[in-house]
Design a binder for these strands. Structure first.
Lengths: 334, 334
DNA sequence: CTGAAAGCGCTTACAG
DNA sequence: CTGAAAGCGCTTACAG
């Protein structure tokens, strides 16, 4: 492995000049630069990142905690997000360092340790929870971080965040169903304690109201994000005195449950009942008919997060992105 | 941020002694160790990893290339694998560094660069392909790596690997179906060019033969790992003069296609036709009836990989693990 | 058991 | 535009 010193000797310049050739080429005369560059190539020199980091105290590594899921409850779009995050980081010479940590406040000593030992410069948080303790904890200690997702607390959230506009997304879904002629659209969500659920619910409510559609008794809160709960909720909406002809579900999994219930009853999804999900997970295109779903702009989210972490603006910044409605058979025939 | 020097001053010993307290505590007298430990805690000292790595030239970071997938073709068990890999690495003080790289030989300069700049000590390869160019490339340059999966070449594969015994797994699936009374079991796989497909096919063949079951015309090779191909293959097996009453599919996705076809025909999965998949992906427990599938022992695989990379045996080592048959409704009623 | 010193491979004011 | 020197924070023979 060639070192800076060896390159300098080979090019007959000082190590400082080689370092400049790499980090500030404009400081060199053209012919010197060329000579140094040639030596670098000849010796196949690659700067040692540890030495650099020790000197500059920047490791150009971003910590990301890989969530652990209850059995079978895999995060279906995580690999897409991770790939996008990696690609975004690499476009500015950074990389992602993966780690595991206990949930909640107990995990914070892991974050602290990684930062204190200089394994990472900062963190990208995701799987943000209502009243997530990580944000204030990190902010208090001045450990750099950005958040994918809001904390939904009463007070303003510490740090920069990027999120998807769930309300706007669900409103898009409602309008899409209205255009397909639906007149009674239900919402399948989670309890009010979840900020994310409230957000998406509000989009459904607003759009229904704007379209002059009824709301009363048409929103169901599921206790868990499972197929079974989705089925049960759909059954309730379809068993009502005046059954729904459209369903907006808060997640793909709930939508899949609804899809099953619709099929069980001999109703035709996309014909008798229009249905939409959220996330455009791999499940959405695997079922039949395909599930219309709201796709989060993963690449843009990842790029924003990395940018906010790498070049932190002077004050905390927020960015709300629109999801994209991916239309499949569950909401429109053919 | 406290440094070694400050801790040494505080404990009134040399820096060498503090370093020993951390890395070779047995060299210190008990009272010295205690005094030093107290100072470390008081000053909340955390050793700078970059300085350590520069000195020892070990970064304790394992590179893992996050695969990019064609749209919608997410790797459904990847987040489980990544979590297991992280946890395994952390149990020996290591971490996972994620990166992206072009497929095949074009990506090797990325691997080379990460290693040369000392961002990683070595690599865990996965998504291994038939005649994967990465293994010989890395071996030739003496860049440490281990492989999850075999390369299936004619020659012996460079480097250590860990893999799941697909043949044994598919044989287990066949025997399970035989026990449930099936007498005509088909296999849905991929073309013979895939070593993995050959492996799993051979398990089906062996077990059928041992059970005295027919083989002729009962294996179908799909061109792609999609629902549609799985459906088509199942249709062929069910349209035969003597239709099958059991199907072993090479993947969960193909099995899901078969499940759809079985349902379409008004046949009852698990009753009229027994069906199994491979991977126990999140899809398997989400469909109805649940899909019987072969679960790869992810945690054990990850632990083996990290161990082989961290404490490389003197000669390349291989480890073949048994998958576990997870039985759900698709292969047995109730 | 403990300590003084060299050195890992860089970058960065500073001087020329 | 170029170079000599200090120093980032550790570890590791080596000496006492």
């Amino acid at each position: 492995m060639a070192t800076l010193k060896q390159v300098a000797a080979h090019a007959e310049v000082s190590v400082q000049t080689v370092s400049n050739a790499l980090n500030a080429p404009h400081r060199l005369r053209a012919d010197t630069l060329q000579r140094v560059t040639r030596s670098i190539e000849l010796l196949n020199y690659r700067p040692n990142r540890n030495a650099r980091s020790l000197r500059t105290s920047a490791v150009e590594l971003v910590g990301y905690c890989v969530p652990s899921w209850p059995k079978g409850q895999a995060h279906l779009v995580m690999d897409q997000f991770l790939h996008a995050l990696c690609a975004a980081a690499e476009s500015s010479g950074r990389h992602i360092l993966l780690f595991t940590a206990p949930a909640g406040i107990d995990g914070m000593k892991v974050y602290d340790d990684l930062h204190a030992r200089r394994l990472v410069d900062g963190f990208v948080l995701s799987q943000t929870e209502t009243k997530d303790p990580r944000h204030p904890w990190l902010a208090k200690r001045k450990i750099p971080f950005v958040s994918f997702g809001r904390v939904w607390g009463e007070n303003s959230q510490p740090g920069s965040w990027v999120d998807v506009d769930g309300a706007a997304g669900c409103a898009m879904a409602v309008r899409h169903l209205v255009e397909a002629g639906r007149t009674r659209i239900g919402f399948i969500g989670w309890p009010r304690t979840s900020g994310l659920a409230q957000d998406r619910l509000s989009g459904w409510r607003t759009a229904c109201r704007e379209a002059g559609l009824p709301l009363a008794g048409l929103s169901v809160a599921c206790r868990a994000d499972t197929i079974e709960e989705g089925s049960r909720a759909a059954a309730r909406l379809l068993d009502a005195e005046r059954p729904v002809d459209g369903i907006v579900a808060l997640s793909d999994v709930l939508a899949l449950g609804a899809l099953r219930e619709i099929n069980h009853r001999g109703l035709r999804p996309g014909v008798d009942v229009g249905l939409t999900g959220f996330d455009d997970s791999p499940l959405a295109s695997v079922v039949e008919p395909g599930l219309t779903s709201l796709r989060q702009p993963i690449d843009e989210i990842a790029a924003s997060l990395v940018k906010l972490l790498s070049d932190p603006p002077t004050r905390a910044t927020t960015r709300l992105l629109l999801p994209e409605l991916v239309i499949r058979g569950s909401s429109s025939p053919g």
